[in-house]
């Protein structure tokens, strides 16, 4: 194709998105659209999968059967989210194995929040309430994104997320209405998860390299800073209901703007964790790589069994 023809196709393509038409996998698309989507959807999928690890840590130690069943169901949902997203990503012509390889080699990123440890039961409450809460804010606008398979996966994901957040909040509420010690545990979890949750919504608009293009392709409907403000505005009153304190001395309701003002985010910490120096980066990656490598013989055996059954069927038919 000549450069002029490509330019022409690109214009038609951008106009389709402008008109709110969906792009489906076999449609012509600019290479940059394909690559950007592979990167974002796979990053999202990896986050769901790695995100199972900090919570999985508490399944065997959940304080009651009710809590255990809920946590197990939630973690299973996250596995499902990862699978919806991986298969949406594969429609763009990348294989599942390549995607895993990118994660395991460190080439692909995942949400840095999952590199923090879950040291008490209250962390499970805080994750559901704050981390799933921030995820919902990120994900709801994506239900209308331009790439069909991604949008459909997000609709499914969003339907399932709200139970995640509610079960987390319920854990926090129970702790906050419990003994002094339990309430202190909830406060401590909020202290540790608050700032990483704010960081989860991404670098500030000024520092974000992808925002403009992503807005055009509806990979983003709001900027990171808008999403962060929305998260803070909805979460602070919930902390008030719990009776615990958001660890930000500069947090203050601003009558004029109708939003909360908040303190400076430590972006150095964020970039440190993104670059692999968070408290659990190595542990998380090791768990994923081990699961993949130690499971190789099971995958091979299942394949060998399937082939054997198939050839038996063929032999019987002939």
């Amino acid at each position: 194709m000549s450069e002029k023809e490509i330019k022409n196709l690109e214009q038609i393509f951008e106009a389709r998105i402008e008109r709110d038409e969906k792009i489906e996998p076999k449609d012509w698309m600019p290479e940059k659209y394909r690559q950007t989507h592979i990167r974002q959807i796979s990053q999202h999928a990896h986050s769901e999968i790695v995100g199972m690890l900090p919570e999985g840590n508490w399944i065997t130690r959940a304080p009651s059967l009710r809590r255990k069943a809920a946590l197990l169901a939630k973690v299973q949902d996250e596995a499902g989210h990862g699978l919806y997203l991986y298969s949406a990503c594969e429609t763009l012509g990348v294989s599942r194995e390549e995607l895993y390889e990118q994660l395991h080699s460190g080439k692909a990123k995942y949400s840095s929040i999952f590199n923090y440890p879950t040291i008490t039961w209250a962390d499970i409450g805080a994750i559901g309430w704050l981390v799933d809460g921030a995820a919902i804010i990120n994900q709801v606008p994506l239900c209308n994104t331009s790439f069909g398979p991604y949008a459909r996966a997000m609709v499914r994901v969003c339907k399932e997320e709200s139970f995640h957040q509610r079960q987390g909040f319920e854990i926090m509420l129970t702790l906050c209405r419990g003994t002094e010690e339990q309430k202190a545990m909830a406060q401590d979890a909020l202290n540790r998860w608050w700032w990483p949750s704010l960081m989860m919504l991404g670098p500030t608009d000024a520092a974000s390299v992808h925002t403009e293009q992503s807005l055009k392709w509806k990979l983003k409907r709001k900027t990171n800073d808008e999403l962060r403000q929305q998260f803070i505005d909805q979460t602070v009153p919930q902390a008030d209901i719990l009776g615990i304190t958001v660890p930000d001395p500069d947090l203050k309701w601003n009558e004029e703007t109708g939003h909360y003002d908040f303190g400076e985010i430590d972006w150095d910490e964020f970039w440190q964790v993104v670059k692999g120096h968070g408290p659990c980066n190595k542990e998380r990656m090791k768990a994923r790589v081990d699961a993949w490598e130690n499971g190789a013989w099971v995958r091979d055996a299942a394949m060998a069994y399937a082939e054997k059954q198939q050839s038996k069927k063929v032999a019987k038919a002939s």
Partner: peptide, 8 residues
């Protein structure tokens, strides 16, 4: 509904 990987 979507897709997935499986041996058989």
């Amino acid at each position: 509904f979507g897709s997935l990987h499986a041996a058989d």
